[in-house]
Simulated scan of single mutants.
Amino acid sequence: MALATQKGWKLWQLDVKSTFLNGVLEEEVYVDQIEGFVIKGAEDKVSPSEETLYVRTKKGVGTLIISIYVDDIVYTGSSDEMVKEFTAEMMCKYEMSDLGLLHNFLGMGVTQTEGSIFIHQKKYALTLQDKFGLKDCKSVSTPLVATDKLQREDGSEATDESLYRKIVGSLLYLTATRPDIMFSASLLARFMDTPSKMHYGAAKRVLRYIQGTVDYGIEYVTGKSALLVGYCDSD
């Protein structure tokens, strides 16, 4: 995304249909090597690693960059011709849904404008308030209290480990587009094995901070470093 912004390219998305089948297999399944990956003398062995990022270049035409994550394919490039050619090839050979410009990827919302790409997890952030019983809670201006020093032995009672881990795990996932909570989430993660009520209270405070900052995300702007901004689309 940062590279696409820097180059002024648009991001596009394809979705593979029926990647996972829910039916129970009643027959044996055999797998063959992918064409072009067979190594002479090791025809019955798999390749050493599975690439998730591919680059195609055509002299005098341009560059195409393709990223694959399970059933999601995101691609960008300098040539409209190569983008259209790739889309047509994939749609012809596989069962694909052409989703057009990238709007959502791995739970992140993506807004593309001229000169910038904005990514956020607003929808996910809002679900956390309901999930952990803090819907419509009063927000706070900082994720942690500056004067509080969290430590393993703080004298307070133990709290529900399972619930605490769920909160911290959710916060860590949110850091994909929220670097402002990276420090607090990482700090809270140190106490996953024996959390206390003080640790639990600190985790809830981070959720209250998120309540007032659900519109925050990362904006990549052409010619600038990534910025944390409070802009979000209607989603």
Rank of each mutant, 00 (worst) to 15 (best):
D98F: 11
T222F: 09
R208H: 08
V168T: 01
S141E: 14
W12R: 09
T76A: 15
S116W: 10
T222G: 14
S141G: 13
S47F: 01
A42N: 06
S47E: 04
G8S: 10
S18E: 13
T222P: 00
T5E: 01
S225N: 14
A42S: 12
T175W: 07
G107W: 02
A189V: 03
T57E: 07
L64C: 03
G62R: 00
K204W: 00
K122L: 05
K131R: 09
Y209M: 03
D160I: 06
G109F: 02
K45I: 08
Y200T: 13
T87W: 06
L134A: 04
L25E: 07
S78I: 12
I117P: 02
E26L: 15
D130P: 11
T159M: 01
L187Y: 00
N22L: 02
F132P: 00
V214D: 08
Q13P: 11
E27S: 10
G60H: 04
A2G: 12
G8A: 06
V24W: 06
K135N: 07
K166I: 04
Q151L: 15
A2E: 15
T142N: 00
T19N: 12
T63E: 05
S156I: 04
K166R: 15
D160G: 09
D98T: 14
K84F: 06
Y75N: 01
Y164M: 08
Q13W: 13
H199L: 07
V31Y: 10
E43F: 05
D154S: 03
I65R: 03
A42F: 08
S184A: 04
T213M: 00
E81M: 10
A189N: 09
L126S: 02
T63Q: 05
G8F: 12
L21W: 11
L227H: 08
D71L: 01
I167G: 02
L174I: 03
I39D: 13
L163N: 08
D215P: 01
M82S: 03
R208F: 09
I68A: 02
E81L: 10
D148L: 14
I66V: 14
L174S: 01
S141I: 13
I117R: 06
Q121V: 07
I34Q: 13
G77P: 01
V29C: 13
G60K: 00
K123A: 15
S196H: 13
E85P: 10
S141M: 13
S67V: 05
Y220Q: 12
E85H: 13
Y173S: 04
G36N: 03
I218S: 06
G230E: 10
I167C: 04
T213N: 07
